[in-house]
Design a protein around this nucleic acid. Structure first.
Length: 495
RNA sequence: GCUCGUGUGGUGUAGUUCGGUCCAUCAUGACGGACUCUCGAUCCGUCGACCCGGGUUCAAAUCCCGGCACGAGCACCA
């Protein structure tokens, strides 16, 4: 066979090197006018978990020249109530993460008349009914595949109940609108699922105008249709949602969009991405705020100095796998480090400083060091050498080392004797700083639920709040602020 | 319990649609080395995987059957 092939088609024997496909896979189905959506609950700012939805959806929109709808699913006033500031936070974060603003921004709470109208149509068409059963008793019906007594009520009776719900005549929990499916569907989750419920608690944005609010499966299904969404990308925990909504679409005679799913992601360093539990930790005082550097929020990531490009590369690299994955933060960090390294200026931070005096034959003078070793165009930084210098206490060791970019020294009686300016042997290289060019600084290092702080001295050369620096031999950190006593506060980014 | 989904090196990921071009891709990691430009960068090298068992086939990561493991849904949350 091989001999035959060699004669007929020698190319067929050449091994092509395997390649990993880059970027996202093609979208299934019709892709001429793609409309995607990202639908967070504004019960807090966006988290690292949400950023996956922003990146994947906006990236597909870019690939196909389509649109992304940013939709605020704010229909719950009790369990996960929206917070008013979060709407604008999320719009800004969406733009920061994706590098573009959303094409359409809508709030479910503004669209209530649309949902209520469709609900009434559904009831009138006999595809839904008002169920007055208690949730526990309906659960029994559902599990035993029995129809509940409300199911066969007349349309007139249902409309009367529907009006009563909207008038506020029925208490919370007293009634719910169900979509009529089939009590014999194998999957219990799909049997006559609830579409709208009563909430008397006022909504932070629209007040107490509405007494009946749609549940996610209903509201989202209606709005996806209204916006012409062609592809829904969401977590695989919402697979049953797709099936429920498909049944609703059948009632209305609509065609359901293509649905794609991703699995659950855990980042080892963070407990989870739940907005409610983050909010709890802030309310209890365990965390300082939404941008506490220990938190997996976008605000915290920004404050620490992550760039949005690394977030995009990270999620695109992970793709749309339905596998549940647990990934170390280091993976994101390595994307970030690679991207920011070339534009990050170097500075010296000496933690746990120890002062030493230089001794030897050298003139008091300027020492000029590059701001970036590979990018001379950003210029140099100047140190005055002559006075006392500081090194990290732990670096003392046997007292023989090289002060990086300066001189080989040997410590004798608290004095650093300069042995050579040229690198003369394989001794350790350590970072150091003239006292004259330093200012007090504190490096804040998030570590799980803890915050470690390291006091030291920072090279005081053109420090700009908000900039990220690479602290030589330490790692990357962002200058967060200056304290009143002018101490520089650095927040640790990564190594 | 019912329903749905997923199993590729330490961690992720490509390849599975339509079996051969796969002694399985890329990244990250670990280890070692080069560079008298860092514990950073760059460059070089090394390590390491198709969940298990059958079947079909000249040929299986890929198709079929049966296990096992893990995850999710079954909320008047999103």
């Amino acid at each position: 066979m091989r001999v035959l092939l060699e004669k007929l088609a020698p190319d067929a024997l050449e091994r092509k090197k395997q390649e990993k496909s880059v970027g996202l896979k093609d979208l299934p189905g019709e892709s001429s006018e793609v409309v995607l959506r990202f639908a967070p609950n504004p019960n807090g700012p966006l988290s690292l978990g949400h950023s996956r939805g922003v990146v994947i959806n906006s990236e597909y929109a870019k690939m196909y020249g389509g649109k992304v709808v940013l939709r605020f699913d704010d229909t719950d006033t009790k369990v996960k109530p929206p917070i008013p500031e979060a709407y604008s936070w999320i719009e800004e974060e969406f733009e920061w993460i994706s590098g573009r603003s959303a094409d359409v921004v809508i709030r479910a709470s503004d669209r209530m008349p649309v949902y209520l109208d469709y609900a009434r149509k559904m009831i009138q068409g006999g595809h839904g009914y008002v169920c007055r059963c208690k949730s526990e008793s309906f659960r029994e019906f559902r599990n035993s595949k029995e129809e509940c007594p409300c199911r066969n009520k007349s349309i007139e009776g249902n409309i009367a109940d529907w009006d009563a719900m909207n008038e506020g005549e029925i208490e919370e929990g007293g009634a719910v609108v169900r979509v009529k499916t089939d009590m014999n569907i194998p999957n219990p989750a799909l049997r006559d699922w609830p579409a709208l419920r009563i909430q008397h608690k006022p909504h932070p944005m629209v007040g107490d105008r509405y007494k009946v609010w749609p549940l996610l499966d209903f509201q989202s299904a209606i709005e996806d249709h209204e916006q012409g969404v062609t592809h829904i990308i969401r977590g695989k925990d919402l697979m049953d949602s797709t099936r429920k909504q498909t049944l609703l679409y059948e009632h209305f005679g609509w065609e359901y969009p293509s649905a794609l799913y991703w699995g659950r992601v855990k980042v080892h360093e963070y407990g989870g991405f739940s907005t409610s539990s983050i909010r709890e930790s802030i309310d209890s005082g365990a965390k300082e705020g939404w941008d506490d550097p220990r938190l997996p929020t976008i605000k915290a990531l920004q404050r620490r100095g992550f760039c949005s490009e690394s977030l995009r590369e990270f999620w695109i690299d992970l793709g749309l796998s339905q596998k549940d994955i647990s990934i170390p933060l280091q993976t994101l960090e390595s994307f970030n480090a690679r991207i920011i390294d070339s534009k990050t200026e170097r500075r010296v931070f000496v933690g746990d400083p120890r002062e030493i005096k230089l001794q030897g034959d050298f003139p008091t003078s300027n020492l000029s060091l590059p701001r970036h070793p590979e990018n001379p165009t950003v210029g140099n930084r100047c140190w005055m050498v002559g006075g006392p210098v500081v090194i990290q206490d732990g670096d003392i060791g046997d007292g023989v080392f090289r002060l990086k970019d300066f001189a080989d020294v040997k410590i004798v009686d608290e004095l650093a004797n300069i042995e050579s300016f040229e690198k003369s042997d394989e001794r350790r290289k350590i970072h150091w700083l003239p006292l004259e060019n330093s200012r007090k600084a504190r490096l804040v290092i998030p570590d799980g639920d803890e915050i470690d702080e390291l006091d030291g001295l920072l090279e005081d050369v053109d420090l700009v709040i908000g900039d990220v620096y690479q602290l030589e031999r330490v790692g990357f950190a962002r200058l967060d602020r200056f304290e009143e006593d002018l101490t520089a506060i650095l927040i640790w980014l990564h190594g």
